[in-house]
Computed example of a mutant assay.
Amino acid sequence: MRKFFLYLVPSLFFVASLLLMTSGGWLKEPVGKSDDVLFHVENIEQYIQEKRWEEAASEHKKALQAWDQVSKRVQFSAERDIINEIKGSLSRIKGGIKAQNANTTLSEIYYFYGLWEDLT
């Protein structure tokens, strides 16, 4: 019996660790409406193109709240650099919205899309 547990416990730990480390792709997906980061960023893009800056700022706040929820889920399965880059990208989007600079904001949004795809 002891030999059974000697092999079972490390094997289960290895499998659990492997599952956790490879789960970034489905952990970034929204669980509810409040944590859909990609949806909020796509709305920001639409508002920027329509020059609706107040709505874009409001949607940005929702995106930050959603990212706070998602980042806690993916922190063990994604690289720390990508998580920090996404947070930085969202901050630069905020700066572009405050400056009402559509070119800067849109380029940062597309950079965010690339980071989001890499978050697996």
Rank of each mutant, 00 (worst) to 15 (best):
L8Y: 09
L8R: 01
V9Y: 01
L12N: 06
F14K: 04
A16L: 14
S17Y: 15
L19H: 02
T22A: 11
T22E: 13
L27K: 13
K28P: 04
K28G: 11
E29D: 12
P30Q: 10
V31A: 13
G32H: 02
G32R: 04
D35W: 10
L38Q: 12
F39A: 09
H40G: 09
N43V: 01
I44F: 08
I44P: 00
Q46R: 09
I48E: 10
I48A: 10
Q49M: 02
K51C: 02
K51R: 08
E54K: 06
E55G: 08
A56K: 07
A56M: 00
A57I: 07
S58R: 06
H60W: 12
H60C: 03
H60R: 00
K62M: 08
K62Q: 13
A63E: 02
L64C: 04
Q65F: 08
A66F: 07
A66T: 05
S71N: 11
R73P: 05
V74Y: 08
F76P: 00
A78P: 02
E79M: 03
E79N: 15
R80I: 14
R80T: 12
D81P: 01
D81V: 09
N84P: 01
S89P: 05
L90D: 04
L90V: 01
I93H: 09
K94L: 07
G96H: 07
G96P: 03
I97S: 05
K98F: 12
K98D: 14
N101Q: 00
T104N: 02
T104S: 08
T105F: 10
L106R: 09
E108Y: 07
I109M: 12
Y110T: 06
